[in-house]
Design a protein around this nucleic acid. Structure first.
Length: 437
RNA sequence: UCCUCAGUAGCUCAAUGGCAGAGCAUGCGGCUGUUAACCGCAGGGUUGUUGGUUCGAGUCCGACCUGGGGAGCCA
């Protein structure tokens, strides 16, 4: 038999439905393998899906049959065969193999089909991403990010990237990562918000989307040291408008994931009904009402204190959709938050708490637009005035009411995927005590 | 930073203070429809480090290291 030079269409597994009856070549990695004497069942993975390739001894060259029987897990292979519909396969299709080529052998792949511990999997995060569960999570994350961009791009916002290096510890609230900057100090950004306020004056509606950094020694399921945040800011919008925007935005994201990522949600065994319940309007309660709920549930919090994870969970469990908590005590919020003119001891801020105990996914509010009030606030917080001169210029030259918020991508992904911990929501998580791979 | 739990084969875990074990993975063999396939055989160990108690320590005690869970801080 002479060597054939015939080549067949190279197809991705997600496309095989339109190649039924045709001979195609698939390229990918061996996910799993089962053998039964004169049959080898190869589960082939190519990033777009998994398909079962059936190698029958009578259909292939003896050397190819031997090869198929000895391919190790995660070796890369090219398989040529005929696409067939078959209800016995999870995908609904199979490949009847005619020839097979081993491209790159995998020796003793560490992640076996059995269970593993979190520490081991995190050490092998670069390989763990190949597994179906992690694959599903990252695809949903990608869809959420695309939805975020689509939402703002389609609603008149301009993308205005904020810097990663910042000259000072802006809000003075959280610990920042310090880095050497040509014999000077720079800090990794904790928020692009102040820059977005300047951008709102230039573009009316602006948003930034990028990584942010917090050097907090937080060891919880809701915290990363490096995470992604999207921050819209809108000129001439008040707190009520801000809440409308946040609500509409979150509904858009949830709908998009339900529309386009059903198979991935199924892999994760996510309760779809809980996501389908995410419809406008979201409940809106004040800080004082939230305190009352906590008192009713025997979890009293002294007035004037912020809520912890447990408190957020109790509040969110009262509702089947995200809850907006607005008007927190002025003292526990950042200096740039505008005070409520009706009652100055409250700030015009809002947090959105996700259902099912996933915690705060949005924080935002209306910004202080009065120059003198802002000057007093900076002094009261003992912040370096010279660092904020540019920020104060936004008030000096045509000040305007404006509001915005920041949405944490990883917490949103964890919520929509139904995950226990945010470390699985980002390809390569950075935690207090994990910097690799 | 604090509390708590754990560390034994590549991985997941067993082992009354008394011979170091199993499943998966790996290698070899068997099976024509397997679904974390199954069956048989084989190789694979400085029990995290260190000091102590004891005739004897994987097991008990101290310190340290690493990791999990939680708290605080934070989003």
């Amino acid at each position: 038999m002479t060597t054939s030079t015939t080549s067949f269409p190279k197809v991705r597994i997600e496309e095989v439905a339109s190649f039924v009856g045709q001979t195609v070549t698939l390229q990918g990695w061996l996910y799993n393998k089962r053998s039964s004497g004169k049959l080898h069942f190869l589960q082939l993975r190519d990033g777009s899906g998994i398909i079962q390739c059936v190698v029958f001894r009578g259909d292939v060259a003896e050397a190819d049959f031997e090869t198929a029987g000895h391919i190790s897990q995660e070796s890369s292979i090219a398989v040529t065969g005929t696409v067939k519909e078959d209800t016995r396969s999870a995908l609904g299709f199979e490949l009847s193999v005619q020839s097979i080529t081993l491209l790159g052998e995998a020796k003793e792949y560490p992640i076996t089909p059995k269970e593993h511990g979190v520490a081991f999997l995190m050490d092998h995060r670069h390989l763990w991403l190949r597994s179906s569960r992690q694959h599903a999570i990252i695809r949903i994350r990608a869809e959420i990010i695309r939805a975020i961009r689509d939402y703002f791009d389609q609603n008149g916002f301009t993308l205005v990237d904020a810097p990663i290096f910042t000259p000072n510890a802006c809000e003075g609230t959280s610990n920042l990562f310090e880095t050497d900057y040509f014999e000077d100090k720079a800090y990794l950004t904790q928020s692009g918000q102040l820059y977005m306020e300047a951008a709102a004056a230039a573009f009316g509606k602006a948003y930034c989307f990028g990584p942010t950094f917090r050097a907090e020694k937080s060891k919880t399921r809701r915290h990363l040291t490096e995470f992604w945040m999207v921050e819209p800011e809108v000129a001439f919008m008040d707190l009520a408008g801000d809440m409308d925007l946040a609500e509409d935005f979150v509904c858009f994201i949830v709908q998009r994931v339900l529309e386009r990522r059903r198979p991935e949600l199924a892999v994760l065994e996510r309760d779809i009904a809980k996501l389908e319940a995410i419809q406008k309007p979201f409940p809106r309660i004040t800080y004082d009402e939230a305190i009352a709920i906590l008192n009713q549930n025997e979890m009293p919090v002294p007035w004037g204190e912020d809520f912890g994870g447990d408190e957020e969970t109790v509040i969110s469990n009262q509702f089947d959709r995200p809850v907006l908590i607005h008007r927190y005590p002025r003292e526990i919020k950042a200096f740039y938050m505008k005070s409520d003119p009706e009652n100055p001891k409250f700030a015009l801020n809002v947090d959105m708490i996700a259902p099912e105990g996933y915690g705060e996914i949005i924080g935002g509010g209306q910004r202080e637009d009065d120059l003198d009030t802002l000057l007093a606030g900076i002094q009261a917080h003992n912040l370096p005035m010279e660092a904020f001169e540019w920020y104060l210029d936004v008030r000096r030259y045509g000040s305007f009411p404006h509001a915005g918020f920041g949405l944490g991508v990883e917490r949103t992904v964890a919520w929509l995927c139904g995950l226990h911990h945010v470390r699985e929501t980002i390809p390569f998580p950075r935690l207090m005590d994990r910097l690799s791979p």
